[in-house]
Design a protein around this nucleic acid. Structure first.
Lengths: 236, 236
DNA sequence: TAGTGGTCTAGACCACCTC
DNA sequence: AGGTGGTCTAGACCACTAT
């Protein structure tokens, strides 16, 4: 047995959550039930559940149970949150437009330099996507994925439009954590026009490196956010 | 016994780390040693250590031990990080100027509205501080602390200039976690002049609510960051 | 090889929530 | 009252790091 049992349980539950088998706002099976299901002890099950809390998939309440969180847009620094709490509640009011990709393209070292530690220079699959909330564009995202052990990735469409879900279900690559750099910058021409704001407006710039369950397999993202209507929020 | 053992261990170790008893880059006692010291089992000690990892005080390495991290400037979304890694390594190259306070002042509901959930409207102790790295101003911070069970807080100076350390050592209030909203905005006149940038330059705005070991006791901070030279980075 | 952290078991008692 | 998660014990075996 190579991957720890708690990681297996974690990935299994994550799969069931993202696929809707466990509904948003609903309860996961109790710890004892999960113990039976996975033939593990409570400490092991709890370790898996704690990881899911850390990743934002569930919250827990004492006498009640493990509650499935409203779907998240990303890891770590997470859900978009605005005046209307409604927008937060579900992904359904959000849309994602694929502007470009998937295509093969080398990683832009200049941009991602601060996050690199000398990974193998593979070919990367590139996406350029625009995310909208209630028809307002709020995020402009450019993503790089190593083109390694991902057969047919470019040919097949994303599962339900979700990159992370596709990686998890189709290739068993579980995105587990992230490091990032955050800056405030003036929007350039392309960003401003996509986010429908004036050029040189302040936008949030996030440089992200995602760690996965596969050794040495990292994803990279550069994200520009319009935070006028929706702030980025995070918990710890 | 009210507060869990692992929280006590956590606070105890945090105190020893921030006071320098355990040096930056050095090792904590092994898990087994800590078990003896606190009369606890490994699982309990590990729970405390995991919390310290989550808060960024230590990292852990398999056959080696628990390594004390370089000192952090804040919780959660954390250390300032720039081209020169040197700046990160220690707090000593940083400076903090107290521009105003401590004085009593009501909380500015308008600003912190998104973070409030109906806490008691106490009087607050107010600070206005400017943080510099290598003599460049990078953060302009306004902090509100409930004036509740903090005898002589205003009269006495901060321990080593650190607010969190003062709360921990003098009042046994342990700051444990944080939620925040992040935005990119155009610098107003005061912020621009303090951070020595042009008015309307993009700055990062962080609205923070800190959770402590004391039930119902929260700290609030509004922080403006100049991210031209130094980005904010975070791990997960 | 000795010591460290990583994982895991099989129990236990308690506090909280719902019924 | 019964079920839930929160805390805790007392062991065990393994993988990694140092020497």
């Amino acid at each position: 047995m190579k991957t720890p049992l708690y990681r297996q349980i974690q990935a299994n539950l994550k799969e069931k959550i993202t696929s809707g088998i466990y509904e948003e706002g609903g309860l996961l099976p109790s710890e004892n039930d999960l113990c039976s299901e996975f033939s593990a002890t409570r400490m092991t099950v709890r370790q898996a559940l704690n990881e899911l809390v850390r990743e934002g998939y569930i919250t827990r309440q004492h006498g009640k149970g493990s509650i499935v969180s409203a779907s998240r847009k990303s890891l770590g620094l997470l859900s978009l949150k605005g005046w209307t709490e409604v927008v937060v509640a579900s992904d359904r009011h959000g849309k994602t437009l694929v502007l470009e990709g998937p295509v093969l393209k080398p990683l832009d070292d200049m941009i991602f330099m601060p996050l690199l530690e000398g990974e193998a220079k593979d070919d990367f699959i590139f996406f350029k996507r625009l995310r909208l909330v209630e028809d307002s564009p709020v995020m402009f995202e450019q993503t790089y994925i190593p083109n390694k052990n991902l057969p047919n990735f470019i040919e097949e469409p994303l599962l339900e439009g979700s990159l992370f879900r596709t990686l998890l279900i189709r290739y068993h690559v579980d995105v587990q954590s992230m490091s990032q750099e955050v800056r405030a910058i003036a929007a350039d021409k392309e960003t401003a026009s996509l986010l429908k704001i004036k050029q040189k407006s302040p936008v949030l710039h996030l440089l992200r490196k995602y760690k996965t369950s596969v050794e040495g397999f990292f994803l990279y993202s550069s994200i520009y956010c319009n935070t006028e209507k929706f702030a980025i929020s995070s918990f710890n």
